[in-house]
């Protein structure tokens, strides 16, 4: 297969950046999207040109490293899939493919297609956990949890932290990401003691990182590779209102 690639090149955070056009040919349909970029890079290196920087690691959709904005969509043309799980058979022969980094103010570009997503870690730091020290836990089966509840908690817990929800949102909101963690822990009995503070602090951090407000369009859930459902956002909103409007009997 043959493709024309229009790729965002930006030397570093200070550089303005621009698109450059590359042709690739002889690509097998079973080549993954990132392998196609590997092939381009091998060629660029051989030609003495600077290869394209992009993030990746596991290449199986779980680490959340990869993340390209392809033809106007986070992680490319298919819904609910990471960039590394895209194959060239998902594109048309001869297609022109525009490749950009995830764009959002809280995600500054480091180089080419690589962005800094550490804002997401800082949100987790504000309570995206249960405060339990190593060694203090009771026997695991002393906390029975209905299977349906555990399954739902799991569904929310599978967020891979890729930031596609942010890139897909016209307001660059990180709502789905935050909601996934809030909802995961809100489901579980272990998550109850810190439930109020958690939602308040995580949302406050999201705001202070410069993420926008939820656009309520659901664009995030269309791209989310972990298929985090929009019900997570509803849960977050309920918890947020509850935490702010009702008196906290246990407030310190």
């Amino acid at each position: 297969m043959r493709f024309t690639l229009e790729i965002w090149r930006q030397k570093n955070a200070q550089d303005e950046g621009r698109f450059e056009v590359y042709e690739v040919d002889g690509i097998s349909p079973n080549t993954s999207f990132l392998e196609m970029l590997d092939i381009l890079n091998e060629r660029l290196i051989k030609e003495g040109k600077e290869p394209v920087a992009f993030d990746h690691d596991c290449r199986e959709g779980i680490c959340g490293s990869c993340g390209l904005f392809i033809n106007g969509r986070a992680h490319g043309p298919l819904p609910n899939i990471t960039t590394c799980r895209l194959y060239m058979r998902h594109f048309k022969d001869g297609e022109r493919i525009v490749i950009e980094p995830f764009r959002a103010k809280p995600f500054p570009v480091i180089k080419d297609l690589v962005v800094d997503r550490s804002a997401l870690d800082r949100i987790i730091q504000k309570g995206g956990y249960i405060s339990v020290n190593t060694g203090s836990a009771p026997d695991a089966n002393s906390i029975p949890i209905p299977k349906a509840v555990a399954d739902r908690a799991f569904d929310y817990a599978t967020c891979i932290g890729c930031g596609a929800c942010v890139a897909a949102c016209k307001n660059a909101s990180a709502m789905l990401f935050v909601a996934a963690k809030v909802s995961h822990l809100a489901m579980l009995p272990q998550g109850q003691p810190e439930r109020r503070q958690r939602v308040k602090r995580m949302v406050a951090q999201m705001d202070s990182e410069g993420f926008g407000h939820c656009s309520n369009t659901g664009a995030c859930a269309v791209e989310c590779p972990a298929k985090i459902p929009l019900s997570a956002i509803a849960q977050l909103q309920r918890d947020y209102i509850w935490a702010n409007l009702t008196p906290d009997l246990y407030a310190r």
Binding site: A137, P144, K147, D151, A153, Q190
Partner: peptide, 16 residues
């Protein structure tokens, strides 16, 4: 024990 206390959603049986 520790991982369950952390809220890790391990698979469960219907009895919880």
């Amino acid at each position: 024990d520790h991982c369950v206390a952390q809220g890790i959603p391990f698979a469960r049986e219907y009895g919880g």
